[in-house]
Amino acid sequence: MKEMKLSFDPYNLIIAGVGGQGNVLASRVVGNMLSRKGFTVTIGETFGGSQRGGSVMSHLRVSSESSFSPQIPKGRAHLVLGLEPAETIRVLAAYGNPDVLALCNLRPIHPVQVISGELDYPDLEDAKGWVKELSRKAWFLNATDTALEMGLPILGNIIMIGAMAALGELPLEREDFERAVSLTMPTDRISINLEAFDRGREMVEAA
């Protein structure tokens, strides 16, 4: 495995979303895929308010050598996988840099203070522009809409993982995903997860 080179060591990936979106599950799936390939993976999660409307962040650090701080230093992310537009902006602002890449699901989840009218949620076109402004390159997907078409909104994060794999930034192969889901998910969910992974890959390739 040592022949597999990472573009950076450690490679710093942040998965950002809102409680209930399956952030933690997504980080475990990606972490397991890479760990099984022989990389040393450190995952730090901030999920205190995970089921209660708060922002959720998973910091993944992938290295050929050693484990790292479960918190990525500010400004040092290489790739941000945003499960929600506003969270993508929040994480880029703190952990981004002019070279960071961003992959963003476009389905907004309104914070409770937006629902109540105290705060405004950004216009989606503005949000896209800002994500682009804060990254070297950005990809936008309607992963939740596709997941809804597939009948299971939670698949949105698997679609996003498939899309991330297609970027080729991290060595994430389809067979790694297949192995990871067969270990972590009930048998009747495996094929739909694989379908979601493939849909994500296709969406990025078409973008």
Binding site: L92, P98, V112, Y121
Partner: peptide, 28 residues
């Protein structure tokens, strides 16, 4: 030491203000 270029950090702060409304904790 700088975490990211100063101009990037400053712009990030601005965009966070407009683009990332606070998420107060809420009952599910």
């Amino acid at each position: 030491y700088e975490s990211a270029p100063e101009a990037y950090v400053k712009r990030g702060q601005e965009l966070m203000f407009f683009g990332a409304p606070n998420r107060e904790l809420t009952f599910c």
